[in-house]
Design a binder for these strands. Structure first.
Length: 417
RNA sequence: GGAGGGAUGACCGAGCGGCCGAAGGUGAUCGCCUGCUAAGCGAUUGAGGGUUUACAAGACUCUCCGAGGGUUCAAAUCCCUCUCCCUCCGCCA
């Protein structure tokens, strides 16, 4: 949720929102709605104060004073009944406008849309196309079975089989151990959450179409463990000395992928269900930008540690999700496509999400502020596996185990099934 | 699925129409005491808004006793509705 007073007083903040597509009119409408709401509130509260005062005096009033006082209180009550609905209306209108303004982009974020990202660096050698693309290789080796998955669940589902499963577990373990060593508390969160949690995490109403509904709408399957991790400290006031609080969530993720018909239809690049290890930080505002760099550096350690060629980009303002002030993606070079494809992203939500989640921090002097929240992919298993399929296959149909995973696998080379 | 019980401040726990934002306790903080520690004594200790002001201090004020309605001059307290949690039985990974 946007900080209205900062929006009114800080031109840079306002410009950041405009760079993300918020119109000047929308912002002005919000500020106007805020002013009228405040005006009405002052009026209503003044009346209520009078009414409370008279009411209180009734209990101690002498019997002959009572009727007059009660009549006076009644009058005030009626006046209030006339004015209060106006305030309610103004507040509701304000509430709706509040949802329309995204978190302003940070000054360091390039302007523009999807194609206006800034490439920060390119790392690693980009090999020629392999003998088999990831989808062919997965099926051929018996690691991925989409045909049979279609029969029972439809398209965009896969069976993961054989050594690919062990590889997934190895990835999860390697990554989780690394993060635990960095102070991230491993978490297996609930993957079914209430509607309110989806709203608080900033996914509803915007991304409602992307989410599976369960139990007649009572619960929703999360598309990322970011949702339950964001809810971990819902409404809490965290001790500043305990920050940053870091979590590594490990869970299955479910996405409807509405509006992606025809995109990435082969293999498991884009599926409705996948497993992911996700980083999440609750952080003091003054160090959240360092925290974003930390998360990015861990992502590079993971992707780079697997020996995958990649680049780091900074997403342009117009392509940022509503709650993000800045976002970096890591894209791995996928040789069969000759393109960089996204495998991770990390965002600083600053105080935008925390304001809605009501997650605060208490400083040593007792003062309270909203925390900053950040999140980033540690390992989206499906995408990581398919990259391994392309980069580690051999011409005689075996798969070399990436060095960091050898200890977990107990082998250096995998055969098909 | 069946049967009950409950939701009050950081926590426990009273309150069941009117100085109740809320007794008491625990915890925490500060002070005293003490050779140190413990104990003891005293004090302080909820949150979120608004107005004013320098978005300071202070002052005034509103809201919050699971949520939403209602009755009343006045509700934590009375009445409806909902949600959530817990216990027992059944079923079950």
């Amino acid at each position: 949720m946007i900080d209205v007073s900062q929006l009114a007083n800080d031109p840079d903040y306002r410009r950041g929102a405009e760079r993300k597509g918020a119109s000047g009119e929308a912002i002005d409408a919000l500020l106007a709605a805020d002013r009228t709401t405040r005006g009405l509130r002052t009026e209503v509260e003044g009346l209520r104060a009078q009414q409370n005062a008279v009411s209180r005096s009734i209990s101690t009033a002498s019997p002959d004073e009572r009727p007059a006082k009660i009549a006076q209180a009644q009058e005030l009550k009626n006046a209030l009944a006339g004015l209060a609905p106006q305030l309610d209306e103004a507040q509701a209108a304000l509430g709706e406008l509040l949802l329309t303004i995204p978190n302003p982009a940070d000054a360091s974020v390039p302007s523009g849309g999807e194609d206006d990202y800034r490439v920060e660096r390119v790392v690693g050698e980009q090999p020629v196309a392999p003998k088999w693309d990831h989808a062919e290789f997965g099926e051929m080796m018996g690691y991925v079975d989409s045909e049979r998955a279609v029969r029972i669940s439809g398209s965009r589902f896969v069976y993961l089989l054989g050594d690919a499963v062990l590889l997934e577990m190895a990835l999860v373990q390697w990554v989780t151990k690394m993060l635990a060593a960095e102070g991230f508390v491993p978490v297996v969160p609930p993957v079914l959450v209430r509607e309110q949690m989806m709203v608080d995490a900033g996914f509803f109403p915007a991304d409602r179409a992307q989410v599976y509904e369960v139990d007649e709408g009572e619960l929703f399957l999360v598309g990322t463990s970011e949702v339950p991790l964001a809810g971990l400290h819902l409404g809490e006031a965290l001790n500043a000395a305990d920050l940053p609080l870091r979590y590594a969530g490990s869970s299955s993720c479910f996405r409807r992928e509405a509006g992606t018909y025809g995109k990435d239809t082969s293999g498991m690049f884009r599926v409705h269900q996948f497993d992911k290890v996700e980083m999440f930080s609750y952080c003091p505002p003054e160090r959240s930008w360092d925290e974003l760099e930390l998360i990015l550096s861990l992502q590079e350690r993971i992707v780079g540690g697997l020996g995958l060629p990649y680049r780091v980009i900074t997403t342009a303002a117009g392509d940022l999700g509503a709650p993000a002030a800045k976002k970096h993606d890591i894209e791995v070079y996928l040789p069969s496509q000759g393109k960089f494809r996204e495998v991770t992203s990390c965002s600083n939500y600053t105080d935008y999400s925390a304001r809605r989640l009501q997650t605060r921090m208490v400083d040593a002097d007792g003062s309270r502020r909203f925390v900053h929240t950040l999140n980033g992919t540690a390992c989206a298993v499906g995408r990581m596996l398919l990259n391994i399929f392309e980069h580690y296959q051999t011409d005689d149909a075996t798969l070399v185990v990436p060095a960091p995973l050898v200890d977990f696998m107990g082998r250096e080379v995998l055969q098909g099934r």
